[in-house]
Structure formats: structure tokens, C-alpha cells
């Protein structure tokens, strides 16, 4: 493998990691505060992508320059609203019953996948990025590289920083961190924990929706993608540590780069590499790289 090819593979891995991070950090956030394993997280990704596309397409046909940004806003909003509805209607009142919550979200994911198939059909769809981030950029050593993929990394870094600021510097972040540590105590202090839970669900689901639109710009979205992103979210947070945002970033980079390197070196066996990493982490640190013991 030549140097430039190797660098391209690593860059591909990082762009994939950026997408995985966007999707998985919402999963991790929700799990961290509410101990809810959101098996419908892949469905939120699909909702973001499809609803975003439904808004994007007519605007794009009219050649409006902000079509893509409107798609992002619609996708994020749709996923966030759906996530809040899930938490408010179904999950909120069975707080603490982890397995039951997981089963409920599985039921939701079955219904959502089927209804999206009914509404949007089985054909795959892809967003067209706006001109500013379309085309390719000249990089040292690696050569020409798609601009959108670099943009993807930028978005992930920005989201990561924003999340860190939110958690470390704001009152909401303070409440979320306190809730992760001791939910009962936070309630006793007079904080409206169900409301904080709704906010976290909106945030986590919105991030999945954002991932959906960005992911559907980088590569086409179709039915069945929800399973892939649910799996990825699971593996990333298992490797990185549940509920930890830096852990999710490390997990996403490990999994994304391993996937791309694996596909370059031994194409049909690359999945095994991902799971070897997961098994190794579980054997040495069951709580994940940056996770705290349960």
C-alpha cells in the first residue's frame, strides 16, 4: 500500500468515524442519563434522513440554495420530536425497567421501519450537498479528497465540542451529569428530572437525525440502514464506554478506522476485525475504555 493510499484509507476511516460519533453520542447520552437502551436509535436516523429528504427534494428542484440546510433542520426536528414523543408517551413512565424499555423500543423500530417503507418505498435516496461543500479539495500526500467528507469531520468535531460545553459549562449539563450519577438525589433536590429526560431525549434523537441527513448526503440511505446504525451505535458505546462522550469519540474512531482498514486489507472479513476489538475491550474492560463500572 502506498503512502497516499494508506492516508486515504485512514481519512475514510475518520470520516466514517465522524458519522458514527454523531449517531452514537445521542445513543450514549440517552443511555447515560436514563439507562434506556434505545433500540429505535437506528429508526431515528432513518426518520431524520427521510423527513429531511422530503423537505429537501422539492426545494432542490426549485434550485433554492438553502435546500440542504432546510433538509438538515427538518431532519433534526423530526427525529427530536419523535424521540420526545417516545419518551413522553411510552418510556417515561417505565423508568428503571430497562429490559421492558428495550423491548418497547424494539417494537417501535419494527413499526417505524415498516411505515417508512410504506411512505417512502424501497428505493434509496441521496442528498446533494450545497456547492460550498461539494467537489474535492487538494490535500498534501493524500491528493484530491471529497470536500464533504472533510466537512463531515468538522461537523463531528463541532458537535463534540458543543456537547462538552453543554455538559461541562451549562446548568442543563450540570443537571444531566448529576442525574447520571444519582437520579434519585437529583429528584430530591427539586429538579424536574422527567423534564431533563425529555431534553436529553430531544438532544440525543436530534443528533441521530443530524447523522441521518449527513450520512444520507455521503452515501445513499435505504431501508435496512437502521439496523446498521443501531449496530454501530451499540458497538461504539460498548467499546468506548456507556454514557461517556469522549469514550464515544474514541470508540467511533477505533471502529470507523478499523472498518475502513479492514475493508482495504481483507474485504470480506472486515466485520470480524470490528468484533475482535469489541471482544478484546469486553475481556479487558467490560465497562468500555472510558466507561465507569456499573
Amino acid at each position: 500500500m502506498t503512502g497516499s493510499l494508506a492516508l486515504t484509507v485512514v481519512l475514510n476511516g475518520l470520516t466514517l468515524a465522524a458519522l458514527y460519533f454523531l449517531v452514537a453520542c445521542g445513543f450514549s447520552l440517552i443511555f447515560g442519563l436514563m439507562r434506556t437502551v434505545n433500540m429505535a436509535h437506528g429508526s431515528l436516523y432513518l426518520i431524520g434522513a427521510y423527513v429531511g429528504y422530503a423537505v429537501f427534494e422539492p426545494l432542490y428542484d426549485q434550485d433554492v440554495w438553502w435546500a440542504w440546510y432546510a433538509g438538515i433542520a427538518a431532519g433534526v426536528a423530526a427525529a427530536a420530536v419523535f424521540g420526545v414523543a417516545m419518551q413522553a408517551v411510552l418510556l417515561g413512565w417505565m423508568q428503571g425497567q430497562e429490559l421492558r424499555q428495550a423491548l418497547v423500543t424494539i417494537g417501535i423500530s419494527i413499526i417505524v421501519a415498516d411505515q417508512l417503507l410504506a411512505v417512502f418505498g424501497g428505493t434509496s435516496r441521496q442528498f446533494f450537498a450545497p456547492d460550498a461543500i461539494f467537489g474535492s479539495t487538494e490535500l498534501p500526500i493524500a491528493g484530491r479528497y471529497p470536500t464533504f467528507r472533510l466537512f463531515q469531520i468538522g461537523v463531528a468535531v463541532m458537535v463534540g465540542l458543543a456537547l462538552w460545553l453543554l455538559l461541562a459549562r451549562t446548568r442543563l449539563g450540570l443537571m444531566i451529569r448529576a442525574g447520571v450519577d444519582d437520579r434519585a438525589m437529583l429528584t430530591a433536590l427539586g429538579v424536574n428530572v422527567p423534564l431533563v429526560s425529555l431534553a436529553v431525549f430531544a438532544l440525543g434523537a436530534g443528533l441521530a437525525g443530524l447523522g441521518g441527513v449527513i450520512g444520507a448526503t455521503a452515501q445513499p440511505v435505504a431501508q435496512g440502514v437502521d439496523a446498521r446504525f443501531l449496530l454501530t451505535s451499540l458497538v461504539v458505546v460498548i467499546v468506548g464506554g456507556m454514557g461517556s462522550i469522549p469514550g464515544t469519540a474514541i470508540g467511533a474512531i477505533l471502529v470507523g478506522v478499523a472498518e475502513q482498514v479492514g475493508q482495504a486489507l481483507f474485504p470480506t472479513y472486515s466485520v470480524i476485525l470490528t468484533f475482535a476489538i469489541m471482544a478484546a475491550v469486553l475481556a479487558l474492560r467490560p465497562q468500555g475504555i472510558l466507561g465507569r463500572p456499573a
Binding site: V37, A102, L231, L234, I238, T268, S270, V271, M278
Partner: peptide, 23 residues
Amino acid sequence: TQGIYLLMITLSLGVGVHLFVQA
């Protein structure tokens, strides 16, 4: 691993093998 973690790990193992045989 216990409880909900076990669920996640076994699910990812299951789907992982599925993706592997498919590829």
C-alpha cells in the same frame, strides 16, 4: 456483563455474524 449490557452485546454479536456471512 449483566442485564441490559448483555442484551446489547449479544445483539451486536448476532448482527455482526449476519453482516459477515452476507459479505
